[in-house]
Simulated scan of single mutants.
Amino acid sequence: MKVEELKQDIIQYSQSIGIDKIGFTTANTFTGLKNILMKQIELNYHSGFEEPDLDKRVTPALLLDKPQSIISIALAYPSKMRERVAGKKGERRGIFCRASWGEDYHHILRNRLQQLQDYIAEKVPDARFKFMVDTGELVDRAVAERAGIGWTGKNCSIITPEFGSYVYLGEIITNIPFAPDKPIEDRCGTCTKCMDACPTGALVNPGQLNAQRCIAFLTQTKGFMPDEFREELGNRIYGCDTCQTVCPENKGKDFHFHPEMEPNSEDVKPLLKPILKMSNKEFKQRFGRMSGSWRGKKPIQRNAILALAHFKDETAVDDLSDLMFTDPRPVIRGTSAWALGKIGGEKAKQELEKALTTEKDPEALEEIQKGLSFL
């Protein structure tokens, strides 16, 4: 079978297994990308979750011997819940970002990539492959851009004409020499809505993100949330969608192609107070299938405490006081103290004054003093 025929075959097969968009590009080094990545590290704009070897991030030949092509895929995910739940006073809810709705997208994409790889291997038995999703070495967005999946928006997301930026990305490196597809022209123009709307100013330049200021990153950290970002968090307990929801290219874009991506509204917009004292087992049972659980329960619990402070939820004072005195983790004790100060009231003040005499951890003590300073 000729390579062009094989390519058309693969495109047809990809559609039959639920791949929403597919593109092909060369396996050449991503020239210029290494300098951009180095600059991000120098400026401390990187998240630290990335592959540390920059050469592997830009050189497919370091990941597969004599590669010829990269196949890039995109799957569209929903932007709206079909079943909604509303927060009420005393029953406040947090929110997981859309990329954490449904089953963990890493599993979904790996499944599609494996099916695609197996199909090609049947046609070309001596072909070689390496596929990856998100946590792999290559920069998914750079691959997708070069393969014509979409363009890189000012919000650093790949934006597709069909699905906006609500897509998951993955790729397969192979030694089959497919003809490359053409990149798509940038359609952002002079629009800066995403940059203007970013709550923390994390989008420092068009297409340049300071991850250390990005709420999506901050919700995944495990230590104390830096003071300047605590009130910007709102009720987000994992991720942030602001730069996507304001994007004109995403207007009216909402696709429900994949049942496993459908959100359970009670899980993606959960009641906050029950999260505070969840055991590890309860957390895994409730949230374990979602990508937003990957850092464990501590960041989610800390963010839930900050969300209760955001709502000034007086019904949470007893729960937060209990955490402040009994939780073994200084970050949870201290964050609870800060939240009590933000919520305010005589009971909160009394509890904070009492904690001042019993707390031994210096960082937690500092948070208690901060809490008292608000009263």
Rank of each mutant, 00 (worst) to 15 (best):
D227S: 12
R230I: 11
L233N: 04
N235A: 12
N235Q: 14
N235S: 07
I237R: 04
Y238W: 15
D241S: 11
T242F: 02
C243A: 09
V246F: 01
C247H: 08
C247D: 03
P248K: 12
P248V: 15
K251T: 15
K251R: 15
K251F: 04
G252W: 07
F255L: 11
H256A: 14
H256Y: 14
F257G: 07
H258K: 12
H258G: 11
P259C: 05
P259H: 08
E260F: 08
M261E: 02
E262W: 03
P263K: 11
P263H: 09
N264W: 06
D267I: 10
D267R: 12
K269S: 10
P270W: 04
P270A: 12
L272T: 03
L272K: 01
P274C: 08
K277S: 15
K277L: 13
M278L: 14
N280D: 13
N280M: 02
K281L: 15
K281I: 15
E282R: 13
K284P: 06
Q285C: 09
Q285V: 09
Q285A: 13
R286E: 04
G288C: 08
G288M: 06
G288Y: 00
M290E: 06
S291Q: 08
S291G: 10
G292D: 06
S293M: 02
R295A: 10
R295K: 05
G296S: 09
K297S: 13
K298F: 12
I300W: 01
Q301D: 02
R302H: 12
N303C: 07
N303W: 06
N303G: 02
N303K: 01
A304I: 02
I305K: 07
L306I: 09
A307L: 07
L308M: 05
L308Y: 02
A309M: 04
A309T: 04
A309E: 01
E314H: 03
E314K: 15
T315S: 10
T315Y: 01
D318V: 14
D319W: 00
L320T: 07
L320Q: 11
L320A: 00
D322H: 08
L323A: 10
M324E: 02
F325C: 13
T326G: 03
D327Y: 05
D327Q: 05
D327V: 01
R329Q: 09
R329C: 14
R329W: 09
P330V: 05
R333F: 03
R333M: 08
G334H: 05
S336D: 06
S336Y: 00
A337G: 14
L340Y: 02
G341F: 07
G341I: 04
K342T: 14
K342H: 15
I343V: 14
G344H: 03
G345C: 13
E346C: 13
K347N: 05
K347C: 04
A348P: 10
A348S: 07
K349R: 15
L352S: 10
E353S: 13
E353R: 12
K354D: 12
K354Y: 13
T357P: 14
D361P: 11
P362V: 15
P362G: 02
